[in-house]
């Protein structure tokens, strides 16, 4: 979609953690109204990528642009302005444990708008109704289930009607029905409100259901980007293994770099470590 100004643009992002390269030259462009799902196994770097996009981690190289503004080099004030335009759903919901469900949803409105308290109360009810939890307004986060916490987190994320929403594993830990409800919510937000979404997940079923485009991250780089159709019959054996959830394939379960036998016999200790990093 070259004619539309992209909402999110990732250019050549690299990230190292203690000498290990977690993200290798990531490029991705997300157009307004699009739902892009990033899939990948544990440790593939998808959470790191998400945290880089929202300005929590600074990348070691490359840029992230949201609405054309460089997130990585924005002043704290600019970054706050950018952050007010997006919403994020954390994996655990990340509700503020000292506030009620309703107060959690109200907080972004109280902090960033001058809305009257009555209007805020109304918006809170509307957002909670959206996730089916209107009656839970006065409960504390510790009094609701994990799945409900996540839905409240979603209600909070959409409280200020963000233009783009980031989801970190939205369906992890949800039962199949709640997963469907969550997926439907993502779809509704796009079709009814035109919200752009970037979803990080390893739930293939949900990914294929909601995505306009999928991108598979493996070892810190995208090995496949395309519409869901491409992922239903993937040519790349690594993608196929992930999509079909096969134990055997090119993606190894064991990630130890050392030789098993040598390790068992204690032959490694005599060798100098390959990298110069001390623990």
């Amino acid at each position: 979609m070259p004619t539309v100004e992209p909402i999110l643009e990732i250019r050549g992002v690299q990230k190292f953690f203690g000498g290990r390269q977690v993200l290798k030259n990531i490029d991705l462009v997300v157009a307004p109204g699009e739902t892009v799902v990033i899939i990948g196994g544990s440790g593939s770097g998808k959470s790191t990528l998400l945290r880089t996009i929202i300005g929590e981690h600074a990348p070691d190289a490359g840029h992230v642009y949201l609405w054309g503004e460089d997130v990585c080099h924005a002043s704290p004030r600019r970054l706050d302005k950018i952050r007010q335009r997006f919403g994020i759903l954390f994996q655990s919901g990340a509700l503020y444990s000292s506030m009620t469900v309703g107060e959690n949803v109200a907080l972004p409105l109280r902090e960033h708008t001058d809305l009257d308290d009555k209007i805020i109360q109304m918006v809170v009810k509307m957002k909670l109704e959206l996730v089916g939890l209107r009656d839970f307004e006065n409960l504390m986060p510790s009094q609701v289930s994990g799945g409900m916490r996540k839905r409240v987190g979603l209600a909070r994320a959409v409280a200020r009607d963000p233009e783009i929403l980031f989801y970190d594993e939205p369906t992890a830990g949800l039962d199949p029905i709640a997963t469907s409800v969550c997926d439907q919510l993502v779809i509704d937000l796009r079709t009814k409100l035109g919200v752009t979404s970037l979803v990080v997940t390893h739930d293939m079923k949900s990914a294929l259901r909601i995505a306009d485009r999928l991108a598979m991250l493996y070892n810190g780089e995208f090995i496949a980007i395309g519409p869901p159709a491409d992922f239903r019959q993937p040519a790349d054996p690594r993608v196929r293994q992930f999509v079909e959830g096969l134990a055997d394939g090119p993606i190894p379960l064991r990630v130890s770099k050392t030789d098993y036998l040598a390790d068992l016999l204690g032959l490694h200790e005599k060798r100098e470590p390959a990298t110069g990093n001390r623990p």
Binding site: D80, R83, Q84, I88, Y96, L107, P108, E111, H112
Partner: peptide, 8 residues
């Protein structure tokens, strides 16, 4: 992290 990313 949630506070920070909500610009609070």
């Amino acid at each position: 992290a949630a506070l920070r990313t909500s610009a609070i």
